[in-house]
Each structure stands twice: as structure tokens, then as C-alpha cells.
Amino acid sequence: MTSYLLRRLPSLAVVLAVSSVLIFGLLRLVPGDPAVTLAGANATPDAVAAIRHELGLDRPVAGQYLHWLAGLVTLDLGRSHIVGGGIGSLVGSALGYTLLLTASALLLAVVAALVLGTLWAGTRRPWVDHLLTGANTLAIAVPTFVLGVALALLFGVVFPVLPTGGVPREGLLADPGITAQYLLLPTICLALPVGGVLTRYLAESLRTELAQPYVVTALAAGISRRRVLVRHALRNVLPTSLTVLGLQTGAVLGGAVLIEFTFSWPGIGMLIERAITGRDYPVVQVLLMLSVTIFVVLQLLTDAAHALLDPRIRLGGTR
């Protein structure tokens, strides 16, 4: 298994390295002098020079890259000139909000997929099948932000029962009940497409699995259909489902940006939106790098989990 994971490492390292160069290059590609942009319209030449020095723009390119990379690794992220404050603390507080949102969305998506996917694959009633097919198609087809607007309209305006934006004023931890209310709509929006994809994948691979000879063996030996479905077959599709979940990370990260924008949720997505409209490039760079790192780390984690769940990989070492 270790060798299986080790073989994944080089490609992930390449992704990180190339991405970091690309993201670093971003600042150099911006038309005009980034220092001037960052300093603002009526900054003194001294202020511009100070920013230039702080960003290392007065040094050779390779040196700048290494300086920037060293800053990232040591978490010395510098200061934000436009949004204001240290980039580290800005990202830190936003990350907390985003993690809460994405974690609850993923949890919802996984639970829904496990329940509905199994039900969908196991049902012998045509109407259940049709109902779930329709609901699933909609869940996948309706874009996150479109759903966000629709839910905000429905529960904020038509039936005003839930907060449609922002976070509790007293902080997330003050009253979990209130926090849950604020969290509910964005979580559903973010979870729906991921859950839809996962449910469909789970149901389809379960159906494939149910046509496998070992299922007939189990059924013919008197094991009940329910047990074969939820114990034997489900256990078989978990490894690959996990990989699919890992591949959905991109959709969740991208979706989080849109959802946070829609519901004014002060996470990474809001921060990145503010940074981009303010042309605060150092912040954009850090956030892009963060997104790529999360993506890569999750890939590695799902690969590891996949390997753990599949004895053919865990014990075989190859494949």
C-alpha cells in the first residue's frame, strides 16, 4: 500500500510545484506595475517603493519566487494593502467559516448519498425509481448559485422563516441553534449538486455490483436482499465512491465561492471576491495556492482511504 501511495506522490508534487509557479507568475502577468495598483491612486512614490520592496519586486525573479514560497511555507503571508490587515489572520478567520460550511455540506451530501443511493439501487418499485431519477437530474442540473437565489427568494421573501445571508452577530459559537439556522440554506445549496453526483454514482455502481456473480452466490446461500445490498455490495463500492467524492472537491471549493457570495457568508469565497474586485494580488495568490493545496491534500487522502478500504491494494502492493 505504501508503494501505491508513493507512486501517487510525484504527480501531486508536480501539480503543487507547477501551480505555485503559475500562481506566482500571475503577479508578473498583471498589466502595469502591481505596486502602483496596490498602493492606490494617490500614493506617494515612497509608499509605492515600500510596497515594491515588501513584495520583493526589486529583486531578481527567481529570488522573488523563493522569497514568496518561503513566506508561504513559514505561514508568513505578509500584509493586505487593500482589504486591510495581515493576510494570515484574514485567511485564518475566513477559513474557519468556509471549513464549517464545506464540512457540513459534505456531511449532508454523504449521508444523503448513502441513504438515497442505496434506496435507489435497491428499489423494485418503478415510481420510487422515477421519483429519484427526476430529483437527481434536477439536483445535478440546477447550478449552486441559481439554487441559492431560489432558496433565498423562497425562504427569505415568500416564506420569511430563515435568514438568507450573513452569520449570527454574536459569533458562530454563541448559540448553535441560531448558527444552524444561518448555516441551513447555504449548506443545502452546496451539498445538493455534490450529493446528486455522489448519489447517482453510488446507485449506478451498486446496480453494477448487484449484477455481479458474488451477489448471486450470497443470495443463493440464503442471505437476505437487504443485507446483501447494505453490507456486501455497499462495502464494495465504497473505495471508488470515495475517489469520486475526492474528485468533487473542486466542485465544492468552486461552489463555496459562489454560495458565500450569494449568502454573504464571510469565508474564503467572500475574501477572494473582495480581493479580486480590489485587485489585491498578494491575497489572491495566497488564496489560489490554498485552494490548490487543499485539492492536492484531499486527493492524497482519498487515495489513501481507497487503498485502505480495498484489500487488493492494501495487501497486494501493486495495481
Partner: peptide, 15 residues
């Protein structure tokens, strides 16, 4: 693929 489309959009727009 390490850049989700929306994030990629943000990066490209930055340039």
C-alpha cells in the same frame, strides 16, 4: 484540474 473552474476564472480574471 487542481483549479476548480470558478477559482480558475478568478485567477484568469486577475490577469
Amino acid at each position: 484540474l487542481a483549479f476548480p473552474p470558478v477559482i480558475l476564472g478568478i485567477a484568469v480574471t486577475a490577469v
